[in-house]
Design a protein around this nucleic acid. Structure first.
Length: 358
DNA sequence: CACGTTACGGTTGAC
DNA sequence: CCGTCAACCGTAACG
């Protein structure tokens, strides 16, 4: 059903209402920002609303992730069977106990951590609804849920083990190996200026959903981003600290990456750029190609020096269909960008879009 | 002019 | 299986 046509914003950029911007663009936003390019310029160059640029950048600064948040679904329930059970125990142990006292005890007993401890009102509700009259202990917790505490469904397994120091016990996510990281080489430390790296993302994505990675190629607006997004999303735990993403993971392509030179450092293996764009553009682009990882990467990395350039290069697909670029073209102000920056911007240019669709 | 914020219309996915 | 709901999205517009 969703052909997901893209819509065109005032800047001439294409977007799909309700859906996150493709990773490539998000990444590019961060990259450019790291180069010192101003948000307003990034906005114009990538044709993404400044509000969006602002939001992505802010999120990146805060979490270290460029990925969108998890869309849909329900918040993880804090009132897991285990929690309910404990509440019941507390109540039975001391019928006169106050909800806030129960809350404190949950924390004290490490049943919950500050991130998932139920609110006082929730506890009251639990006492009222689920526990009701203790007098009749036969009614146990919720009817069905019995599953091994779903803990945080949100960040399922993919949650990354944040190095974060303060991580609250509770939210123990599935930290641990499970993660994609397994991919052999971890780290590619490609020295991003910031601690966090964005690079992997792509990697992750590719890694997790190969098809998806190239996805766009088929013309559809990419298969489910949320998948990968969840990868690094950090729900609530560790409000910051998240640097998450981190490099660890992936970057399959990195292997190709050569010790790139300086610039490249800013552009992680370019790996991403290529396919990422596919996400949106691919279809029509004519790129349809065989899908594989394309040339891009190879090509690109090859020239360290010009790294960015190329990396953008592959994107060339003209936005042809849909919006005549006419407007955009000239508006570019004489911003004081360094040459390097300009280059960076340039390549970025042509992002296209899904428009096509059939 | 730059940019933070937010209303709005939209999508997604757990329940 | 379907509807509801709450989370997220990006744009547009306001300040």
């Amino acid at each position: 059903m969703e052909q997901t046509y893209g819509e065109v914003n005032q800047l001439g950029g294409v977007f799909v209402n309700g859906r996150p911007l493709p990773n490539a663009i998000r990444l590019r936003i961060v990259e450019l920002a790291q180069l010192g390019i101003r948000p307003c310029d990034i906005s114009r160059q990538l044709r993404v609303s400044h509000g969006c640029v602002s939001k992505i950048l802010a999120r990146y600064n805060e979490t270290g992730s460029i990925l969108p948040g998890a869309i849909g679904g329900s918040k993880p329930r804090v009132t897991t069977p285990n929690v309910v059970k404990n509440i019941r125990d507390y109540k039975q142990g001391d019928p006169g106990i106050f909800a806030w006292e129960i809350r404190d005890r949950l924390l004290a007993d490490a049943v919950c951590d500050k991130y998932n401890v139920p609110s006082v009102s929730s506890i009251s509700r639990i006492l009222r609804n689920k526990i009701g009259n203790l007098s009749q202990p036969n009614q146990y917790e919720s009817p069905k849920q019995q599953p091994p505490q779903p803990a945080l469904p949100y960040n399922h397994i993919y949650q990354y083990p944040y190095p974060n120091p303060m991580s609250p016990t509770g939210t123990k996510m599935g930290n641990h190996p499970g993660v994609p990281v397994s991919a052999g080489h971890v780290n590619i430390s490609r020295a991003w200026p910031s601690v966090h790296s964005v690079s992997n993302i792509l990697g992750i994505r590719a890694f997790m959903d190969p098809t998806g990675a190239i996805a766009g190629t088929d013309g559809s607006y990419q298969p489910k981003m949320e998948d990968w997004s969840s990868v690094n999303r950090t729900p609530f735990s560790t409000p910051h600290g998240v640097n998450s993403i981190d490099k660890s993971s992936i970057d399959p392509d990195i292997k190709y990456a050569q010790p790139a030179s300086t610039l490249s450092s800013f552009v992680p293996a370019c790996a991403y750029s290529s396919n990422q764009y596919g996400v949106y553009s691919a279809p029509a682009g004519g790129y349809v190609t065989p899908a594989h990882h394309w040339q891009s990467q190879s090509a690109s990395l090859s020239h360290p020096g010009s790294a960015m350039t190329m990396h953008g290069g592959e994107i060339h697909s003209p936005m042809a269909f849909k919006l005549p670029p006419r407007d955009a073209g000239h508006r570019k102000p004489p911003s004081p960008l360094s040459k390097q920056q300009h280059e960076a911007l340039n390549n970025v240019h042509g992002h296209t879009i899904p428009a096509s669709s059939s």
